[in-house]
C-alpha cells in the first residue's frame, strides 16, 4: 500500500504519480489521506489500480477515470466520475450535483444520496445510488443505466434518449418525453446484476423502469419550445 498525504503532497504531484502508473504496475493499492475537500483528486487515471481516498473531496473527483477503482471514504462534491470511461468509483457518503455526468462507461456506486442532475447526459455509464437522487437526474441521458434505490426528484429523465432508469421509491415527476416502461424479464435480469454489482440490498421486482417515449427524436415544431 502506497500512501499519499495531501497535507504534504501537492495535487499536481498526486495526480502525476497516479497517472504515471502503467497497465502492469505492481503498486496497485494507493491511499490518499488528508484530501480536505480538494478538487480534481485522482483524475485522468488509466491503470487497473485501487485508490482509496480517506475523507471527503471537492469537485470532479475521479474525473474521466479509465480502469481504476476509486473509493471515497466520505462524501464528494459536484461532478464525481464525470465522463468516466471504465473502472469503478465507489462513494461511501453522499454525492453533490452532476454525479457521473456524461460518463461513457464503468460503474459509479453512491452509497448515500445523490443531488440534482445525477447521470446528466450519461453515455453508457452504470450509476447505482443506494439513496435518493435530486431533480433533473438523467437529463438528456443517452445510454447506460441509472439505478435509484430511494426516491427521484422532479423532472426525472427529461429529454432522455436510450438510457434505462430504474427507481424503487417514488418519482416526484417525470421530465419531457420520459415515461414508465414495462419491466420485462431481460430488465429484471439486468437490474439484478446491477444491484449485485452495487452491493444493494434490494430486489429487482421492487423497481419501476423509466425510459424514452421517443417522441422528441425527430424535430418538429411542437418540440421546439
Amino acid at each position: 500500500m502506497q500512501t499519499i498525504d495531501m497535507a504534504t503532497t501537492s495535487l499536481r504531484d498526486l495526480n502525476a504519480t497516479l497517472q504515471a502508473q502503467a497497465e502492469a504496475t505492481n503498486q496497485t493499492a494507493w491511499e490518499i489521506v488528508n484530501p480536505k475537500g480538494s478538487h480534481a483528486i485522482a483524475v485522468g487515471l488509466d491503470a487497473p489500480i485501487e485508490v482509496t481516498v480517506k475523507g471527503s473531496t471537492g469537485y470532479y473527483c475521479a474525473g474521466m477515470n479509465k480502469q481504476a477503482t476509486i473509493t471515497v471514504n466520505g462524501s464528494v462534491g459536484p461532478g464525481v466520475a464525470e465522463n468516466m470511461m471504465s473502472g469503478t468509483v465507489i462513494i461511501d457518503g453522499d454525492a453533490s450535483q452532476y454525479a457521473g455526468a456524461t460518463g461513457h462507461g464503468g460503474t459509479l456506486i453512491i452509497k448515500g444520496n445523490a443531488s440534482s442532475r445525477c447521470g446528466i447526459s450519461m453515455k453508457g455509464i452504470d450509476i447505482i445510488v443506494h439513496g435518493n437522487v435530486g431533480h433533473m437526474s438523467a437529463f438528456m441521458a443517452q445510454s447506460g443505466n441509472l439505478v435509484v434505490c430511494g426516491d427521484a426528484g422532479d423532472a426525472l429523465g427529461d429529454s432522455i434518449y436510450e438510457a434505462r432508469l430504474f427507481v424503487r421509491g417514488s418519482v416526484k415527476s417525470l421530465g419531457a418525453d420520459c415515461i414508465e416502461k414495462e419491466m420485462r424479464p431481460e430488465h429484471i435480469a439486468l437490474l439484478a446484476d446491477l444491484l449485485e454489482r452495487g452491493g444493494c440490498d434490494a430486489k429487482p421486482e421492487e423497481f419501476k423502469r423509466y425510459g424514452s417515449a421517443r417522441q422528441l427524436y425527430n424535430f418538429n415544431i411542437d418540440n421546439a419550445y
Binding site: 495535487l11 499536481r12 495526480n15 502525476a16 497517472q19 478538487h39 480534481a40 483524475v43 485522468g44 471537492g58 469537485y59 470532479y60 474525473g63 474521466m64 461532478g79
Partner: peptide
C-alpha cells in the same frame, strides 16, 4: 475555474 483545473490536471498542465 475548477473545471479548468481538472482539465489541466488530466493533461498535466
Amino acid at each position: 475555474e475548477i473545471k479548468i483545473l481538472e482539465l489541466r490536471e488530466i493533461t498535466g498542465w
